[in-house]
Computed example of a mutant assay.
Amino acid sequence: MSVGLLAQITGLALLDALNPATIAGVALLLLAPMSRPVRAAGMFVVGAYLTVFGLGAVVYLGAGAAAQAVGDGLVWLRRGAFAAAAFALVVAGIRRLRPRIRRAVTVPTWVNSGTSAGLGVLMTGADLPNAFPYFIAIERVVRSGTSWQAGMALLAGYALVYCLPCLVLLVVGALRGDRLRERLRGVYRRLGAERRQPRNVWVAAAYLLGACVLVAIAGTA
């Protein structure tokens, strides 16, 4: 395992850690009117970590087998990651071409301090198809030729870095809960509450342009 490979994986994990879905999940649970919000948020992070590591391990082992069976299997893995991200941008761009009412982001009624890990699994798993840095990281690990034990250790570290912003939010929530919740309520009113989202051609065009860039990268990867 080289220093260069470790630096690449760490950089991709830090980029992937800026994931709004998991961060928003922790924030919502800290704001939720339940008896143990910090514990619920902690279990959510556990579910997110296990999802990132578990699904990554499946993709990694499958990609390694594909690389041995098909010479260009890793190329298609990389192209698929960029194509999935481009598709997500196209969908987001199309949605901005018409006005709509954005529903308020809320915690499901079945979630409590004992079941919040399941919410972490669901939210993180639903967002992983768009996490193209993760697929690039897996491709780098497979191409490096490291042992599968070292590869799994890298994926475990990647998942930890991915959850790092959530862990910071969780620690602050445990130490300064009231102050943090007050600030989170202000953020929620601006970003999470129900609001009318007008049609915005410029934003849609930016999304579609980003999708075209990703498609171009996928075609040359």
Rank of each mutant, 00 (worst) to 15 (best):
S2N: 15
L5A: 13
Q8D: 14
T10G: 09
G11Y: 02
G11L: 15
G11T: 07
L12Q: 01
A13Y: 02
L15R: 05
D16M: 05
L18V: 14
N19Q: 09
P20D: 03
G25D: 06
R36A: 15
P37V: 10
A41R: 00
G42I: 09
G42R: 04
M43P: 00
V45M: 04
V45L: 15
V52N: 01
V52G: 01
V52S: 02
V52Q: 02
G54Y: 10
G56E: 11
V58I: 14
V58C: 07
V59F: 13
G64I: 08
A69F: 04
V70M: 05
G71Q: 10
D72C: 09
D72V: 11
L74W: 01
R79D: 07
R79K: 15
A81G: 15
A84T: 10
A85S: 03
F87S: 12
L89H: 02
V90H: 01
G93P: 09
R95S: 14
L97I: 09
L97S: 08
I101M: 09
R102W: 03
V105H: 06
T106D: 12
V107M: 06
P108R: 04
P108I: 14
T109Q: 04
W110C: 09
S113M: 09
S113W: 13
G114A: 08
G114H: 12
T115K: 05
L122W: 08
M123W: 11
M123C: 07
T124L: 08
G125T: 03
G125Y: 03
A126P: 05
P129R: 12
Y134N: 10
F135C: 07
R140M: 12
R143A: 15
S144E: 07
T146H: 02
Q149L: 15
A150C: 06
G151N: 06
G151H: 05
M152K: 06
A153L: 15
L154D: 09
L155T: 05
L155I: 13
Y158K: 03
A174P: 00
L175F: 06
D178F: 00
R179T: 03
L180T: 07
E182V: 12
R183N: 06
L184G: 01
L184P: 11
R185P: 01
G186N: 03
Y188D: 03
R189D: 13
R190N: 09
A193T: 13
E194T: 10
P198I: 12
V203Q: 14
A205H: 10
Y207D: 08
A211W: 05
C212A: 15
T220M: 12
